[in-house]
């Protein structure tokens, strides 16, 4: 698609960027005396928060996706941004159906596939009604629970399929930024899977089966997954050497580093006037914002001190 086709969308995004939370807003929220005061800062920024809302962050993400869908010439090209939620919903549906719990409360929006279809498919074991990207993994994940009673296997099948779908959808999006982020996320997920599988004593087959194909050699990654130090050494020899330092520290530090890396990547598009990348950047900026708001609000509700919250929050786009 011609880059100038996104001129309208980019302009709308730029206007909406004014409403994004800045680093100062986040700092104010962290230092707010309680959860209500932190929520008031969000309300001042246009967030809709009411007593009945279980998760205002989800509502914000849905608003961001709606804005993108309204503005871009073809929203299908950007489904990579929300396709992961389809797989989260599939996971929720399988867990709930097998535990005889209503899944609706556990569904995440925005998503591509209607959640009612996912519920129906799992309840009736009729996977043909699901869209193509969910069919195979739904069938396998369902059978992992029904035949092998393995919730863990079911989750790993869905996680792998989710990463592969994100990569495939990112490729068709024509956004180099989205491809870069999807590739980094796939590598980061594989690193975590490899380290976890080795520490839990899982077989090589199970570990490789849980990892998606990414830019790095999964077998080599697994060979170096004894601990963070060894993984860092291996990563230092690859194009993903920038991930090496943080994996030595902890999973939390690694995840925070990956999120901050995404923030620095999206900041490169801050002054672009054409193309799809500013739209992608906006969605990731909203994701970082929602993640921070969620961390701060739940920390405030549990009385976590400001210093401890500051360590966990991610860099902002604005």
């Amino acid at each position: 698609m011609n880059e100038t086709e996104y001129t309208y969308a980019v302009a709308r995004i730029r206007a909406n960027e004014l409403k994004l939370l800045s680093a100062d807003d986040i700092s104010q929220m962290i230092n707010a005396p309680d959860k209500d005061s932190a929520e008031r800062i969000l309300i001042d920024k246009g967030w809709e928060i009411s007593e009945s809302d279980s998760d205002p962050c989800e509502k914000e993400m849905n608003r961001a996706w709606k804005l993108i869908k309204e503005s871009v010439p073809s929203a299908e090209l950007l489904e990579a941004l929300v396709i992961g939620n389809d797989f989260s919903n599939l996971k929720a549906a399988i867990k709930c159906v097998f535990s005889s719990v209503a899944p609706q409360a556990y569904y995440v929006i925005p998503c591509v596939t209607d959640t009612d279809i996912i519920t129906k498919a799992i309840k009736e074991a009729d996977f043909g009604i699901l869209p193509e990207h969910l069919q195979k993994c739904a069938r396998e994940a369902y059978s992992a629970v029904s035949k092998h009673q393995s919730g863990q296997l079911s989750e790993s099948i869905i996680d792998r399929a989710s990463l592969e779908a994100k990569l495939a959808y990112a490729k068709k999006s024509e956004s180099s930024l989205l491809e870069k982020i999807a590739e980094m996320n796939a590598v980061a997920a594989n690193i975590k899977t490899a380290l976890r599988c080795v520490s839990m004593g899982k077989t090589k087959e199970f570990a490789l089966g849980s990892m998606c194909s990414c830019a790095l050699d999964n077998e080599k990654m697994l060979e170096n997954a004894e601990n963070g130090e060894k993984m860092a050494e291996y990563l230092g020899t690859t194009e993903f050497d920038f991930l090496a330092e943080s994996i030595k520290e902890s999973f939390t530090a690694f995840e925070k580093f990956c999120d901050n890396r995404i923030s620095s990547l999206i900041r490169e598009t801050k002054y672009d006037i054409y193309g799809v990348d500013p739209v992608v950047a906006y969605y990731y900026a909203k994701t970082a914002e929602a993640k921070n708001a969620r961390i701060i609000l739940s920390a405030k509700a549990s009385g976590v001190p400001a210093d401890a919250i500051s360590e966990r929050v991610r860099d902002m786009y604005v």
């Binding site: 309208y8 730029r14 206007a15 503005s71």
Partner: peptide, 14 residues
């Protein structure tokens, strides 16, 4: 035409 598209985006919001 291009500037018009961008302008329409801004006017939609404000």
């Amino acid at each position: 035409g291009r500037v018009g598209r961008a302008a329409a985006g801004i006017v939609t919001e404000d």
